[in-house]
């Protein structure tokens, strides 16, 4: 029987790779008997879905109110105008 630590590792691995059948069997068996790990497996999937939605919305990891500071905007502006008008 796997420990919770081993099961949690396989639960995570299953999101990044195909488990071998031995691993899958071990995980299923453990989950059938362990409510906490069952919850953990479910939550990892929710975490993944959440991050995917965050990625799609483009800015969920940074609020829309976050903007370039005025100082950096000026700095970038200068760099760009040098590139656009090299003669000046």
């Amino acid at each position: 029987m796997l420990t919770c630590k081993e099961a949690s590792h396989l639960a995570s691995k299953s999101l990044d790779a195909k488990l071998t059948w031995r691993e899958r069997f071990g995980l299923c068996l453990h989950i059938a008997m362990c409510g906490l790990c069952r919850r953990y497996v479910r939550d990892l999937k929710k975490l993944r879905a959440m991050m995917k939605a965050a990625g799609n919305s483009g800015q969920a990891l940074v609020p829309e109110a976050v903007k370039l500071s005025e100082a950096s905007r000026q700095r970038i502006k200068q760099a760009l105008s040098k590139a656009l008008h090299p003669s000046k």
Partner: peptide, 16 residues
């Protein structure tokens, strides 16, 4: 005009 139009969007994308 890119900086004004897209600067903040690019910044948030990079920062995230």
């Amino acid at each position: 005009q890119w900086l004004g139009l897209y600067g903040d969007v690019l910044y948030r994308y990079a920062l995230s």
